[in-house]
Write a protein that binds this DNA or RNA. Structure first.
Lengths: 336, 336
DNA sequence: TGGCCGAAGTCAAGCGCTTTACCACAATGG
DNA sequence: CCATTGTGGTAAAGCGCTTGACTTCGGCCA
């Protein structure tokens, strides 16, 4: 920086003002400085910058991310959005045994300026800790209590309503919802299936449709038992809304053997999956695709906005899933 | 730090020597310092540390990670291993247009101490740039030219041989290999399918078996055409080795409709997939599972070792995939 | 004409550590 | 008994920036 200053015949401070755009500088001076910077290949040192400004320009993304399927997009787009604004995203492994200490040290030790938290539970200890520690944070997801909290999340309620509407429009009167049974897993209390179940029950009730809910554990036994269970406890079902990927695929391959063709006899539509997963099946699943990239970016941007002092009201963004057509959804069969 | 020093009645340097274990200190003094640190809840500031020591203790993981399926494990375990050693992993989006500048600045600007590179192509520009920039780096994957390069990778050659052996042992004489056709994609030149194809051809030749290779593009059309193509161009095939997840699942659901039961009439075994993907199908796929966690960790550890001066010979680690049984592999049917 | 003002720059004091040189002292050996 | 070596500790010079206080100077108004 000193070299740049000397060569451009200005002070070191002026160089700083130029590279940071932090105080007005006459166009000529600025031009001169920028040119010298270019000639010399100068790059400012992040550590020194962080030390002097007391800002690390690092966002911590807390993991473990237990749900391995749909997180890629969030992470990737958050990292990109951060980078575009001069921040960087680090993966922060949070061990559940000492959440409090770790969160405090993360911020207090000046390592990260703010935190991104995914896979939020309805009542999430980590959120309470973040508030206590006064750490700037943004959720990708929602807790039960939302006052004053910045979050971006999938609009499961609206997506579910849309899906039910769409199916109703196709003539379906008997729907089923398939959810992952998370009891006893670390993800018990994970909000999306809970919100979706409630939205589903309300939606079918409001429209006078029948709706059965199946909670299916993640093990192969429970999954392969589903088709039989469906046939016995809700045989008149003509459309399934599924948030359980393994179950969706299992249904798709098991039903034909029972003489049920998809989508001729039964429609299946999934919620919150990725298009690439949907494409793995035959026929490709009709999917309300999780807007991962949009949300990851929105979260990073919201956090940075907070960090840079635009305080205003909380950012609270809900994005519904968009329908990725596929070929597993069709009109209801003529009623027996 | 000054406060700690005062209260422990030592100099600030001694505190530093204690927290970093960087110069001998008598047990009593050390104890005293550590206790004060605990009382005061002192945590050293990363930015200051980085500035003074000229080490950021940050590893950059270059992405885009184009292959979205199996990367999670690498990333996660690398981040964890780094954290255990006082390093952190940041996601570094590398735009292909200015690879050279970006890689240079990454290291020169002191942001990261070293680089982890995934999804390596056989001839990879980024690797050349990293060498030129004298950046410490470790590959997860392998280029063609390997002299003096640190890498950890899946041992596709050995895994393929093992798979072929296993199938031969089950009586299969007519094998097929299904690969993703990556021509025209950003991943053209991606090493794993190339190495696997070669290993497969050699393995079947060495054992006097028949082996047909199918290159299947990623689009739904090509994938759903595969069963027919298989039937017409290699009808006697009794075992398929697949590195193409979508194709594996498609085969599994399409073959029964052609009267071919898996594994009774045809065995399918996949290479380099994750167990969770394998579990999505019915029957669950028999899989040589990618050792993602092992490799991510090994890569981070190798990089840190380099950074901390243990220079010695290059770390070159190959880990074969282990068989995750599943239920899609069985003895060859009696020959017609 | 003098006083005032704003705009463009400069000065210099840190930011919170690491690390090299150095010091005091005790033990050791010839 | 003195020189040598080793041991535990301190002093202080940075690391490369940011930033608030200060200077300079030309214009403008009364």
């Amino acid at each position: 920086m000193q070299q740049v200053a000397d060569r451009a015949k200005v002070s070191i401070s002026t160089v700083s003002f130029v590279v940071n755009n932090t105080k007005p500088v006459t166009p000529e001076t600025r031009e001169r400085v920028l040119q010298v910077i270019d000639e010399l290949g100068y790059r400012r040192n992040r550590a020194a910058r962080a030390l002097a400004s007391r800002k690390s320009r690092i966002l911590a993304l807390i993991y473990p991310m237990l749900d391995h399927r749909n997180n890629h997009a969030f992470v990737e787009s958050a990292a990109t959005a951060a980078e575009e604004r001069g921040y960087n995203l680090v993966l922060w492994p949070l061990h559940s045994d000492n959440v409090t200490t770790e969160i405090a040290s993360l911020i207090e030790a000046g390592f990260a300026d703010g935190v991104l938290l995914m896979e939020v539970q309805l009542d999430d200890e980590r959120v309470s800790r973040l508030r206590e520690a006064q750490a700037p944070f943004v959720l990708i997801g929602r807790t039960r209590e939302l006052a004053g909290i910045d979050y971006v999340d999938i609009d499961f309620e609206r997506t579910t309503q849309t899906a039910v509407d769409e199916l109703a429009k196709l003539g379906h009167r008997d729907l089923a919802l398939v959810l992952e049974d998370l009891r006893g897993t670390p993800l018990a209390g994970y909000a999306p299936p809970i919100r979706t179940e409630q939205a589903f029950r309300e939606a079918v009730a409001a429209r006078g449709l029948a709706g059965t809910v199946f909670h299916v554990a993640h093990d192969s036994g429970s999954i392969s038992a589903l088709p039989a269970e469906l046939a016995s406890s809700a045989p008149q079902t003509t459309a399934i809304v599924s948030m359980h990927d393994a179950a969706s695929l299992a249904l798709l391959s098991a039903l034909p053997r029972r003489g049920i063709e998809v989508p001729r006899d039964l429609s299946i539509v999934t919620i919150g999956t990725t298009a690439s997963l949907a494409a793995l099946s035959q026929p490709p699943l009709s999917t309300y695709e999780a807007p991962g990239h949009v949300l990851g970016r929105a979260a990073a941007e919201a956090l940075i906005a907070r960090l840079e002092g635009r305080d205003g009201p909380a950012t609270q963004v809900l994005v519904p899933c968009a329908l990725h057509p596929g070929a597993s959804m069709g009109p209801a069969p003529a009623r027996a």
